[in-house]
Design a protein around this nucleic acid. Structure first.
Lengths: 343, 343
DNA sequence: TCCAGGTATGACAGCGCTGTCAAGCGTTGC
DNA sequence: GCAACGCTTGACAGCGCTGTCATACCTGGA
């Protein structure tokens, strides 16, 4: 099945079919209808290789990520693939280190060598302003996914995720259970999302009239080991927290391991909450209370936005809200008199 | 940089350069050298789109998998990508359900629609003999990765992994620690690897003169929940095992959670071992003793074999051995008198 | 010396599509 | 009624490579 077959069937030229396939505007509605019917009848799908070879770009987008989490990567890839398949685009995965200097130049070369149509930038790459500015200057179309409570007004299209609100919800959940001393294990300082989650945590405490305590907020990275060490430090405090909020599920898994290694029972001695709804959070014991992030859906939207933009259509920013998922790792605090060490 | 540029630089025709790039034999050694030098000088890389459009296949391979484990998928993808990048091939990921009827036909259509050059088949797809036979009959080039103690002699090229030997090593490790009652949580009946691991477990017991006990071997799937349930059943036996060997890390993680939910201390009350060396095994508490499988390296080899085959070169089967990794989840059994439930 | 038969190389078409440019057509304004 | 304009459509070249086929070259045996 080629353009010519469709053209013959519809009684138009191949070029007109090409116009319809690419969503160009200068086609009369009735002509467009005829072509679309022919495409459907013949089950025509454009040949990516030919389009890419002939056109000014390869009809393929790049998904740029700097994230060690396999589940996240798979989910993002899945979402991007869904959008690309539906819109007849190809996909290239592009891991990178968001902290290296010259990242914008690397990405530019990547785009040019493969003649990519555009990029979807995920966090934390999407938060490096200098890189964004350069990519824009290189005239590379991109859409970014960022953590923000409301739509950024810098004119660069994006999908934004309200981490702050979700972190507020988790903290409020703990407060409503009766916890007052709530530890916060921060991770991924290079991720703006981590600042947003901290902010949500602090907002909730303030809103419930609970004093913020520096010793309960511990810095680290988005990794298991930092969750483990951070939680250990919290447990060693004169007055340890009765609940811990890990900035993502991996940190929370580390905190869970730390509790178990210390002989503390979760959730009776200490409640633990994560963020992400990764399989970690379901495959631990007890399973983790967390915030569900649909990375696949978010990336799919971002990909669709990017392709629309490449086609010269107008696109508006979109927002997503993570959703609280309560599981067995959070419970009311044990009355002080009955709290004890075990093990 | 195009073939013509290289041709001009080397003083030959574009076609000859094409022959060198594709490793064809009918090029005089000195001509080949000249061309290779020109390629290097100009840093020429063939254009995948053009090759695919022009040639009889798309210079792209498909990686076929039926595996829910994200880490595995990422590792395999990474390996395949390394090989494809080095050899100027494209990669398409292809998840599937290995149990559906008509899988061979689906794969054939997938290959034909994208004009793929060949397939790398991973377990358990690679173990479905009928599917393999059909793919061979369709003249689709493929290489498979299977679990086997020695090279299969069916003439279909493969990379084989000795799961049996690795399972033997893990069981022997437990036996040497002094365990006699060792539970085995089997998973993934549709995977031949699972039978091989069971075999390795049984071989080790026999070799150490320990009687096999049916009630200690529990069937399930490669999932957390079955590990959890299976371990629970083992703990409820009149004489529960002092060690549990989970058929993969996810099962072992389930067993670990079951132990913790039952108040058993790992490894003092019960030892637990997994298989795979997934991040699960490092991010649990205690970290799991397991067998390291380099899925990335294995798939990279398989991909290189496939491409060699596509180019008409001769390829031999290759083998890999997983490697025992001892961590904190295994220890000598606690003397009976001192064993106790904790609550 | 010549020719058969193999080996090494090149000329050329064409893969399926898009970019460019030109032409056709209907509409508007004077 | 006619020029001028915008909208819609089509003809055609060519993207970079490989498949096919023809040709040049080389070897050894008669």
């Amino acid at each position: 099945m080629t353009l010519d077959d469709v053209a013959a069937q519809a009684g138009v030229s191949a070029k007109t079919v090409s116009r319809v396939v690419n969503g160009e505007r200068s086609v009369r509605p009735d002509t467009r209808q005829r072509v679309l019917r022919a495409i459907e009848q013949l089950d025509y799908r454009p040949n990516l290789l030919a389009r890419g070879l002939s056109g000014s770009h390869a009809y393929t987008i790049g998904l740029v990520y700097d994230n060690p989490n396999a589940y996240y990567i798979i989910a993002m890839q899945q979402g991007a693939l869904t959008a690309c398949d539906a819109l007849n685009f190809g996909l290239q995965m592009r891991p990178c280190d968001s902290t290296v200097p010259g990242l914008a130049e690397d990405l530019r070369d990547f785009v040019h060598r493969s003649r990519l149509s555009g990029l979807v930038l995920t966090t934390p790459v999407s938060e490096r302003q200098a890189t964004l500015r350069k990519l824009a200057a290189y005239r590379i179309p991109f859409v970014r996914i960022v953590s923000a409570a409301k739509s950024p007004h810098d004119g660069i299209p994006c999908v934004y995720v309200d981490d702050r609100d979700a972190a507020y919800a988790i903290t409020a959940h703990l407060l409503q259970l009766g916890h007052v001393r709530i530890g916060f294990l921060r991770g991924g300082k290079q991720h703006h999302a981590s600042a947003e989650r901290l902010q949500g945590y602090q907002d909730a405490l303030r809103h419930y009239g609970v004093t913020l305590r520096k010793e309960l907020m511990i810095e680290g990275d988005y990794v298991f080991d930092d969750g483990f060490r951070g939680a250990r430090r919290l447990f060693e405090l004169a007055e340890p927290p009765t609940a811990i909020f890990g900035c993502n599920d991996e940190i929370a898994a580390g905190a869970l391991a730390a509790a178990q290694s210390t002989g503390l029972h979760v959730p009776y001695d200490v409640s633990i909450a994560g963020f992400e709804d990764s399989p970690f959070s379901r495959h631990s014991w007890p399973p983790l209370t967390t915030a569900r992030q649909r990375a696949d859906v978010i990336v799919e939207r971002a990909t669709r936005m990017l392709i629309a933009r490449i086609r010269g259509e107008h696109v508006d920013n979109e927002s997503f809200n993570p959703e609280l998922v309560v599981r067995g790792s959070t419970a009311p605090p044990r009355p002080k008199s009955r709290r004890r060490k075990r093990g």
